[in-house]
């Protein structure tokens, strides 16, 4: 996983609530056995017309959002299926940061496993960020994970909360499994106890 560093980037606006993972990556693209190449299918059913051409009405097709690394979206983003193909598609498309008031639980976890910083802001903060983008499309925000800040040209600057464990892993690009396996002796000891307490699970 790439370490997450402080960056300034175009912030793309998608003012929709309850965007589900079926929209982020429709099921017809879940048959691949690789992790890569999902970005081309991100938001497929909204992004493309029936003939395969770009849907000019879809927010992210606006040329001004090209190259954006920050996605600003409505509440309960990523609800529905557990498919990690959703964050794979988001990361592969080029986003490394999402800003919203809330995320679905599994999706939120999946983001951090894939180097995506999912920032939770208040409704007032989100409204201000959305208004700033709407008034000045192509505006660039600065995200500093180490200091947990978002800074914008219009002065919508604030500090966000994040679990220190997630923050640390994202900053260092650390592999979760490697970290857990440092505790392998404790897992071994737990299993010994587990076999004694619940022998029927091991019969």
């Amino acid at each position: 996983m790439q370490p997450y560093t402080k960056h300034e980037s175009i912030a793309a606006l998608m003012n929709r609530s309850n965007v589900d993972t079926d929209q982020i990556i429709p099921k017809q693209f879940l048959k691949k056995v690789e992790r890569s190449g999902f970005g081309q299918h991100l938001f497929h059913d909204w992004r493309f017309n029936d003939d395969g051409s770009d849907n000019a009405d879809f927010e992210l097709n606006k040329p001004v959002f090209k190259g954006a690394k920050i996605l600003v979206v409505g509440d309960n983003f990523g609800c529905g299926s557990s498919r990690e193909h959703a964050p794979w598609a988001i990361a592969d498309y080029g986003f490394n940061t999402i800003i919203s008031t809330s995320y679905a639980d599994i999706f939120y976890n999946n983001c951090f496993k894939n180097g995506i910083l999912a920032i939770i802001v208040s409704q007032a903060q989100l409204d201000a960020l959305m208004a700033e983008i709407a008034a000045n499309e192509g505006v660039k925000f600065t995200v500093d994970l180490e200091n947990r800040t978002v800074t914008t040209p219009a002065g919508n600057s604030f500090t966000f909360e994040i679990d220190p464990f997630r923050q640390g892993n994202l900053l260092s690009g650390l592999d979760d499994i490697g970290l857990t396996l440092k505790h392998v002796d404790k897992i071994d000891a737990y299993e010994v106890k587990h076999k004694q307490s619940y022998p029927w699970l091991w019969a």
């Binding site: 992790r35 990690e84 599994i106 999946n110 979760d176 499994i177 857990t180 396996l181 897992i187 299993e191």
Partner: peptide, 19 residues
């Protein structure tokens, strides 16, 4: 009982645990 992502599937296979 709960759903997990693919990275977590790998994590559970390797460690039998989940953060």
């Amino acid at each position: 009982a709960f759903g997990i992502g693919t990275s977590e599937v790998e994590h559970v296979m390797a460690t039998q645990t989940l953060p």
